[in-house]
Computed example of a mutant assay.
Amino acid sequence: MTVQEPTARPVAAPIPAVPTAGATTTRPGSIILTRHGEPALSRKCLITARQYKDWWGKYEVGGLLAGQTPPPELVNAAEGAGAIYASTRQRAQETAAAVSAGREVMSDALFIEAPLPPPRLPDFIRLSPRWWGVVSRVWWRLSDRHHQEETHREAKVRADVAARKLIERAEAGQDVLVLAHGYFNHMVGKRLKANGWALVHNQGFKYWSQRRYERR
């Protein structure tokens, strides 16, 4: 069963105005979008589209594979961050606990992963969860009907709100670390770029990876 939290449809607030000439300015901090650690649920299976829907539901509520150690570079980023945000999903929460060393972590459903509803395909088609994720992501982007799940259009609005929230915090001069999910981080990153932030350090989308953005 797919687990879904109600998705608000917030109206994007304006980005804080640029200070006028002569005013004292604070150099903005960095915004670091990080993917969670490796989940415990195995992807080594062949399943149908209907089974993938159940698999994704379990993935959404599951935690991390035991025995992982966060990269030192990520731990250092957490130590230097003035603010740490985490998605409310368990895998993101456990990632935050692993890197934050007991510091305050602000849990926010704004950063949860975009949904992955699979298309209705016959049961003789069996793929691994990895490839169902690819098929489902394409299907989700192309269709606006997902049985009351968040659409791509709605997720874009959410990503814009998330980006503006992070920008506002970083503009105060603090580095901001976000521990969340691969695809939604990608969507937030696109909105950061659209608002004048450059990707200056890119570890891709693997588990524990960082993508650091700075104001141009």
Rank of each mutant, 00 (worst) to 15 (best):
E60I: 06
V135K: 04
R158Q: 00
Q93C: 07
Y59Q: 08
E104D: 14
L116T: 03
S136M: 02
E150S: 00
L166P: 05
S100F: 07
Y59T: 03
P122S: 11
P72L: 02
A162Q: 13
P117T: 00
V138Q: 05
A101T: 05
Q90F: 10
A83F: 06
A162F: 08
S100D: 13
L121H: 10
V138E: 08
K58R: 15
L116M: 12
A155T: 02
W56Y: 03
R91S: 10
M106D: 11
T151P: 00
K165E: 14
A114D: 09
S128K: 10
V134S: 10
R89N: 08
L64K: 05
A78I: 04
R137S: 06
L65R: 04
E154V: 14
G102V: 12
R158H: 14
A162L: 11
S128C: 09
A159T: 06
R158N: 08
D160E: 15
W139E: 01
P119D: 11
E113A: 12
R137T: 00
Q93R: 15
S128M: 08
E73M: 08
A109F: 03
G80H: 12
T69W: 01
F111N: 08
G63D: 00
A155G: 04
I167M: 15
V105K: 00
S136C: 07
R120A: 11
R103S: 13
I112W: 00
S87C: 14
G133T: 01
N76I: 03
R141M: 13
A98W: 05
A97P: 01
A98L: 12
P72G: 02
V157W: 02
G57V: 07
R103F: 08
K156M: 10
